[in-house]
Deep mutational scan, measured.
Amino acid sequence: MFYPNSPQTSPQLTQIPYGQQYAMMQRQIQQPYHPFATTEPQARLYPYHYQGPIQQEQGGFITQQSTAASPQYVQMRVTPVDQSIMSGYPNQTANGSSSSSFNYNIHPQQQQQQQQQQQQLRHHAMPVGSVPLQDDRYRKQLIVNYLAPDVTSTDLHELFSRFGELDGARIIYDKQTNMSKGYGFVYFCHAEDAKEAVERMSGYEFHGKWLKVGYSTNPLNIVPSNSSPYVHAGSRGAAG
């Protein structure tokens, strides 16, 4: 039997160049792979992502010199942007860049009308829970959420009447099932009393439920100042 490094198959040491006398086997001759043993700084910083320098080929596509990437890492192929796409944008300079302001050559009167329309939209648009300043009635009506099913309009009136005089209180019921929808409205005579009720009743436990109280901004629920107070009856038909 002959071994790869046996004296019968191995040459004389004098015939082997210096430095390879003890590297006779194939696994010894093959050098191990060192990912950080390279002179390129990109490979030292990113050993798993770097795959060699990027070269520009004919046709405008950018390719990489090395083989496919590892399945664990996804390499994105980048193509140059066609400058003709950006030619339609206004205020574009000769080098292809555009300024931040756009001039669509709008007539001054049209621009003024658009600004007025935007101001009107901001004036009428009102986020949930906010209180408008032009109508004091919005500051007097509250919406009470997360009410228990057994709470009546009379219970709601008695709960909030300790903060001040009320114009009314009612629970909203479903017309088909005649069941409470879980929320109601309270109408105060003074805005200061309503503000105190919002601050003190939010998070209050009532009939096993934690109440959420806020201003009601729905104009359909506003009680006119010259109208008669609501009837605080315990029956659902009268309260709904």
Rank of each mutant, 00 (worst) to 15 (best):
Q15I: 15
Q116K: 03
Y48M: 08
Q65V: 14
I29Y: 15
V81F: 14
Q56W: 15
Q31L: 13
T154G: 07
Q119V: 14
L156F: 03
H124G: 06
G214N: 08
Q58S: 12
L220C: 13
S130N: 11
A194Y: 07
Q83V: 15
T177Q: 04
H190D: 10
H49N: 13
Q55E: 08
N178W: 09
Q64E: 07
P32T: 05
Q26D: 09
R236Q: 04
G203I: 00
T14L: 11
L121Q: 07
L45R: 11
E199I: 12
M201K: 00
A238F: 08
Y146W: 00
Q31V: 15
I62W: 12
Q12N: 04
G168L: 03
T217I: 05
N103Q: 01
R77G: 05
G184T: 03
G184S: 01
S202R: 07
L13M: 13
A37R: 10
N145C: 06
Q109I: 15
Y46F: 10
R139S: 05
Y204Q: 05
Q120A: 12
G214M: 02
E192K: 08
L220I: 13
Q20S: 11
P32M: 06
G237K: 11
L220R: 14
L166S: 03
G168S: 03
M179I: 06
G184W: 01
G96V: 07
Q28P: 12
Q28V: 11
N218K: 01
H34T: 08
Q83T: 08
N178Y: 04
D193V: 02
Y22R: 09
L220Q: 13
G208Q: 06
Q55M: 13
L142V: 07
N5C: 13
F188T: 01
S180V: 10
G19S: 08
D155Y: 08
V198I: 07
Q117G: 07
F163P: 11
Q51M: 12
G208T: 04
L133K: 04
I54N: 09
M24G: 08
F102L: 07
A23T: 12
A197D: 01
H107N: 15
A23E: 09
R44Y: 15
I143G: 00
F206R: 00
P224M: 13
V186H: 04
N91V: 12
I16R: 11
F185Y: 00
A23L: 14
K212S: 00
Q113L: 12
Q12H: 12
Q72Y: 13
F188N: 01
V81T: 06
Y89N: 04
T14I: 14
E40N: 11
S202L: 06
D193C: 14
Q28F: 12
D174Q: 06
L220F: 01
I106S: 04
G129E: 11
F163Y: 11
Y18I: 05
L220W: 02
W210T: 02
P11K: 08
Q56I: 12
F206W: 14
N226W: 12
P229I: 10
S161T: 09
R137H: 04
T93R: 07
Q28N: 14
Q83L: 12
G96L: 11
Q112D: 09
S99R: 13
V131A: 11
A197R: 01
Y22Q: 06
M24H: 05
S84W: 15
L147K: 03
Y104V: 11
Y104Q: 04
D167A: 05
P53W: 15
H207Y: 06
P224G: 03
S235E: 09
V81C: 10
R170A: 00
T177S: 06
M126T: 04
V223D: 02
N226S: 06
A94F: 13
I85W: 15
E196F: 11
A238W: 14
S87A: 10
Y73E: 02
R200T: 11
S6H: 11
L220A: 07
I172D: 00
D82H: 09
P71I: 14
